[in-house]
Design a protein around this nucleic acid. Structure first.
Lengths: 220, 220, 220, 220
DNA sequence: GATGAATGAGGTTTCATTCAT
DNA sequence: TATGAATGAAACCTCATTCAT
């Protein structure tokens, strides 16, 4: 869609070209699953896509560009999460909402785990475009969460004395890292169910200021 | 301590060799600050250490080994944090303890930020030795925290219904990711002070089940 | 014949590639003339072939593979010799045949001296593929010779009491070593003509059991 | 003994040094058994001799020198063979002598197989010092054999019309190559006993001009 | 649109060899 | 005598990337 905007110099692909391009992108994503970003070779992508390295360069400036394009969808998918975060947070529904947010986030991460891995690493290594992408994706959730907290603070008495934006950021950081190391946690004996529960409680408390009810929400 | 245990095949260095070795290790650490692990070249380390690549190979099998050795200290330093986590969590001191833990963690991370970056990266890429290191380092804190939560649950009434280990894991994940992206947060307008406060409140609540007092602890 | 059978992973070269490949092979053979196998550097081959080391690796896995391919012709060329050995060994023709075999062998060796040098070296160092090649090449001659001796023993009276296969092996060993050290012998004052004559006499006697006639065969 | 003559620049070793030197030489010989000359590293020798590379260089200029010294004994040991060749070649003893010579040569070769391997290869690759050594070692036998043939030709009637020196050279070449490839032959199904018999017959005929008697000599 | 071919560029790694102690 | 240390020197091999077809 925005291909030509990203690569204004490159050929505008016709039907067949579009297909080749797609194939290359898919192959890149496939390889990302099993291989570290830094270990992926253009020739591997080409081979996997039944084409040649030279062809890759007809559609992408380099590997980074291709991955960047794959990563574009992160931000899009995140939008759905933001809506989940929005609510409802009243009465008994709140506990269920908290659960849904945490679970939704883990699913979101799982669906994009391999790409997030690249984005995270590139961000840590100082790549600004990847950082921007990461920010965009997580920003939607963070802002939505911050809004919810702010809203809640104005409604409830005895609510916790929290900086809404910082707390939102912290909670998102928590969700990100738990999701990212999910299998590490499991390896270490922590069930995903427990991790979700613990996170949901922290989220619930952060928003409502109340101790969450025991057990999991009724509709789970 | 015993270098020869790590590299039984290699020469046990004498005084001069020990110095050279140290210099190489330092240079490696230096380069790690500015460069991604994967972009560090042995020749750069050697240059920085005023020696030659061949010398590097006299003391280390490869770059990974050298970094692994640097990373060994992560686990050691983490011990101090575990002690911080241990308490006290009674009465008014609890709020101060929560703050100290969070701050301590951020300092710990800051002091080892560059090494943690490598360890994280390698862990995500599936390197088992680095994963082990990471686990060892964070394990100390997580277990200590879990113990504190368990202890608190048996003492306080109305404490939150939390799985101690999972909650500890989640909180550590939170601290890790906030610390790791600290500058990203700041870039995004969130003050470190606010981040610390938010985290401390979540930690305090997780342990005590009470809403933390407003403002920062008196002794800060 | 089918290159792709040797290197199934490599690209099947088109016209231009085929030429480059050929050039690299030629250059390898050239260098083999003046240099010991172990002293040949890929960069030298590339330079000689007016190309780059990277190109070499596009067509050959490594130096060994290239030489192995050069050596393939040894076995092919040996076939001609086997035919020479086959006869005729009757009456006056026998003496001429003996001479032709010895001379043919020396020419064969001379034409492949440099490759045989490598093959021998590699064989002695335990390389099984080279040993196989050597065996294949010399096997043809040895077997043919053994057949001739067996045949002769059944026809002539008073023939020597020889194990045909062992004798054939011994004679081939003789031819190999004389040919290989031909210039050493000459340096030491032995004329090639005399070496040929001596060998031919031993061969003649081995087959016919008779003392060969004085002088060289008429048709020489 | 002649060490100082070979390495006039090096230290003249005292008792302890002499021992170290010997150890290094032994280790070199040991490694030669399992490893190709070109694959032997100074550090391997040093390790095997429980010393350091630097020490090696106190006694030898380089690896070649050390091997050359090991090879010195080839010529000495060959003297014994020359005596064997000398005779007796009269009457029934001749057949036994032929056998003894061939067997003696194979033993001689076997005892020095690994060194001969190096010497042969170095010679083929054009190393003049090794060629000289080889010549010296084989010269003794060749000359002795040539003398025997010459002598025989003057005594017997109907003896073959052979150039004694060339024939001697050819026979030695035969013995050398059969001995060198002994295990190759065996792998190929030829018994050493048969190889010895075939060679002995050729030798016998070359000297006496007669067909050797059937079977092996009585005193074997 | 696709791709055979070619290659510049460079870090890794291994040793032989040398000193100074 | 012996050896810790240090290093110059090279070749290997791998890719990303580019052209010309």
């Amino acid at each position: 869609m925005e291909t030509s905007m990203l690569n204004p110099e490159r050929r505008v692909p016709g039907r067949r070209g579009q297909e080749t391009r797609e194939r290359l992108l898919n192959s890149t994503a496939n390889l990302l699953v099993k291989t570290s970003w830094r270990d992926i070779k253009i020739i591997d992508i080409a081979r996997d896509a039944n084409t040649s390295p030279a062809t890759f360069y007809q559609y992408f400036e380099n590997l980074e560009q291709a991955i960047l394009e794959l990563a574009e969808k992160l931000a899009g998918d995140a939008q759905h999460l933001a809506e989940l975060v929005a609510g409802p947070w009243k009465g008994e529904q709140a506990w269920s909402t908290a659960y849904k947010v945490i679970e939704g986030f883990m699913q979101y991460w799982e669906a994009n785990r391999h790409i997030f891995r690249v984005v995270d690493l590139a961000t840590e290594e100082g790549d600004l475009r990847f950082r921007g992408l990461r920010t965009r994706a997580l920003n939607a959730i963070t802002v939505a969460l911050s809004a919810v907290i702010t809203q809640a603070q104005s409604e409830f008495e005895g609510k916790p004395d929290l900086d809404p934006m910082a707390t939102a950021g912290v909670l998102v950081a928590m969700m990100v890292n738990v999701a990212a190391h999910r299998y590490g946690f499991e390896f270490w004996g922590m069930k995903t169910a427990s991790l979700i529960d613990s996170q949901a409680r922290l989220l619930y408390w952060s928003v409502t200021g109340n101790t969450p009810p025991p057990g999991i929400p009724k509709d789970f």
